[in-house]
Design a protein around this nucleic acid. Structure first.
Length: 590
RNA sequence: GGCCCCGUAGUUCAACGGAUAGAACGGCGGUUUCCUAAACCGUAAAUCCGGGUUCGAUUCCCGGCGGGGCUACCA
């Protein structure tokens, strides 16, 4: 809608006042006022030395002249120009949209610059948890939203498959595992490796306590605990390419990755490509050496390599340890460079929690210093953490909300509610289970995505996620009722005359449907899927109100019937397409 | 200590600097011989405090107060 009106308003201002503006602000007309879209003109009053109301009237007249088919009329309230679209415009729009099921969604255009989105990016020493779910859903939704604006998107993750964390699991498995495998135990691979990570921690704490009891200070005890020494030894052997260590590492990583794949599949997220830290950290080291040669980095007496970012208000930052091994950021440097080499991308978006804001400032700043031309097109989509009523999730306190468990719980709740309501009575068993999964997932996904990404989310495991009100199932339910209506309507054509007057509820609905493309644009620009979620919720509220108040199949005449069916059909498309942008499926019945 | 983020009904969330601060859950009260009541309709209930900028501030700036994060030779 903006795409149509904004140029017209700019032209009107040019012709009336010789003003050239790059863009103007347009807002949906506030409820309770006549009109569809509103142009506030206060900001012009001073320069034009005219009362706002006079300006609004002049612009309104000019718009009617410029867009006679589209602008039906206007009214002025203070400095607000409320523009009403014409009944002919609405009718034309609605007739056209029923013939185009992909309303609002553009196909990716390969000639446009590509965008890479990184999300999830787990460590390979334990299963995915609620934090990864929020991350993955955000990344997946942002990808879909950007793609819907026509840009090609590549979805990726970096798998942190090397380092002390996986060495810990390896040591513990070797010590206590007795050859246990996912097959022998029936435990999902990522959970099995996670189990040994916990085992390591238990043993480690025991040893530290013992050493402390012998009079060793805590600092030393933590460093000198035998099992920790073994883990460090394991990491060293890995870096030196010890075949036995590499074999163990590969075996356990494969278990974990298989487990992750299952969870991703269940969650409904995917990746177009993957990077492994074990593949990129060496490139990272090379980049650090290059920066060292160019004098961008410097070496301390002990041999460690640093960068000084204090001129940008950041600190000095370690890039390579004294022993030459890499740290977290080393690998990130390598991965970024590799991605721009391997893919035709213009932009790289990292979906990573806000606790890493500082890390990404540093990373981007280093890449700029190194002179990479793409370095100013890196974005950190920094999202708030998911915390529990008692605070942060902590694996050692067992408060982590496991991804697989949570999904299962959502399915169970969906089943319970559906059966209590008697909704799925008589459905074939396989269809029932499929529906429960679709609904349960929708409840979870919508719950996490309707909130502004940068805000923290409070998650109370004792309270179940709602299925009523502003929820995923609420949106699905509206869709299902629409499907049922259309099914019962049989064959029908979106042929209807321009109504003398749209019913208020019909018009409210249309006004919102017309906004859908603007909403997608806005969500893509701000990397904010919550914009889509909240829009869909408003739309469905409006639709339900329409559905409640006005008969569709039993409409008073055939014109009205066709019009209301068309409205329902297009609303259904928007719900379905909009939810797809959030990674949420719709069932055909529920 | 330094840097960053966040404070909106009892609770969980909305509101490009715009009109009368919207919803949901929970509370209270209604609506099924009619297209699926996971719905609809009504009702009570909120911008942390103090300054400033502006025609207009929940939004921007300054200062408090409160909460969280980062400040690792962990990732």
């Amino acid at each position: 809608m903006k795409a149509l009106l904004e140029p017209a308003i700019r032209r009107a201002l040019r012709e009336l006042y010789d003003l050239n503006l790059d863009s103007v602000e347009l807002i949906p007309t506030k409820k309770g006022f006549e009109g569809d879209i509103t142009f506030p003109v206060f900001f012009l009053a001073k320069t034009l030395r005219k009362p706002p109301a006079a300006i609004a009237a002049e612009v309104g007249d000019k718009l009617k002249e410029l867009l006679p088919d589209t602008v039906g009329g206007y009214n002025v309230a203070g400095g607000f120009l409320n523009i009403s679209l014409s009944p002919e415009f609405y009718t034309r729009f609605l007739r056209e949209q029923t013939k185009r099921p992909g309303y609002g969604i553009r196909r990716p255009d390969p000639s446009l610059p590509g965008v890479m989105v990184e999300y999830s990016s787990p460590n390979t020493n334990k299963p995915l948890h609620l934090g990864h779910i929020r991350n993955s859903l955000l990344g997946y939704a942002v990808s879909a939203i950007i793609e819907a604006t026509g840009k090609p998107v590549i979805r990726t993750q970096i798998i942190n498959d090397r380092g002390i964390h996986i060495s810990k699991s390896m040591v513990a498995w070797k010590k206590f595992g007795e050859g246990e495998t996912p097959e022998s135990s029936g435990i999902k691979g990522d959970h099995l490796v996670g189990k040994y990570y916990v085992e390591f921690d238990k043993q480690y704490r025991k040893e530290v306590k013992e050493l402390a009891a012998q009079g060793m200070d805590e600092e030393t005890a933590k460093r000198e605990a035998p099992i920790m020494r073994e883990a460090r030894e394991m990491l060293k052997k890995w870096e030196n390419g010890d075949p036995e260590t590499l074999a163990l590492w590969k075996m356990m990583n494969d278990w974990v990755l298989e487990g992750f794949r299952e969870t991703y599949r269940e969650l409904g997220v995917r990746f177009d490509t993957e990077y492994f830290e074990s593949d990129t950290y060496l490139l990272g080291k090379k980049i650090v050496e290059e920066g060292l040669r160019k004098g961008i980095f410097y070496r301390k007496e002990d041999g460690s390599v640093w960068v000084d970012l204090s001129d940008e208000g950041l600190d000095e930052k370690l890039l390579l340890r004294a022993d030459g091994t890499s740290v977290y950021i080393t690998q990130d440097l390598g991965t970024a460079v590799k991605r721009f080499e391997e893919f035709d991308i213009d932009t790289l978006i990292y979906v990573v929690g806000s606790e890493q804001d500082y890390h990404f400032k540093v990373l981007f700043s280093i890449l700029k210093k190194l002179g990479y031309p793409w370095a100013d097109r890196l974005y950190h989509l920094s999202y708030g953490m998911v915390h529990l009523p008692e605070g942060k999730m902590k694996s050692r306190e067992g408060t982590v909300v496991d991804a697989d468990d949570l999904l299962q719980k959502m399915y169970d709740t969906a089943r319970k509610i559906s059966e209590e309501l008697g909704k799925t009575e008589g459905f074939p068993p396989q269809e029932k289970e499929k529906i429960y999964k679709i609904i349960g997932k929708a409840a979870l996904k919508y719950h996490l995505l309707k909130v502004d990404p940068r805000k923290d989310i409070l998650f109370d495991p004792k309270k179940s996620i709602d299925f009523n009100g502003n929820t995923g199932p609420f949106l699905q339910y509206a869709y299902v009722r629409i499907r049922s209506l259309l099914h019962k309507a049989g064959d029908w054509q979106a042929e209807f005359a321009v109504p003398e007057q749209w019913d208020e509820k019909e018009k409210d609905l249309l006004k919102q449907i017309i906004q859908f493309p603007d909403i997608i644009r806005n969500a893509a620009d701000t990397l904010n899927p919550a914009v889509v979620a909240n829009y869909l919720y408003q739309l469905v509220k409006t639709y339900n109100s329409f559905y409640q108040a006005l008969p569709v199949l039993q409409a008073p005449d055939s014109d009205t019937r066709a019009r209301r069916l068309a409205l329902s059909a297009v609303t259904g498309d928007v719900i379905k397409n909009g939810l797809a942008l959030l990674g949420i499926e719709v069932p055909e019945r529920m």
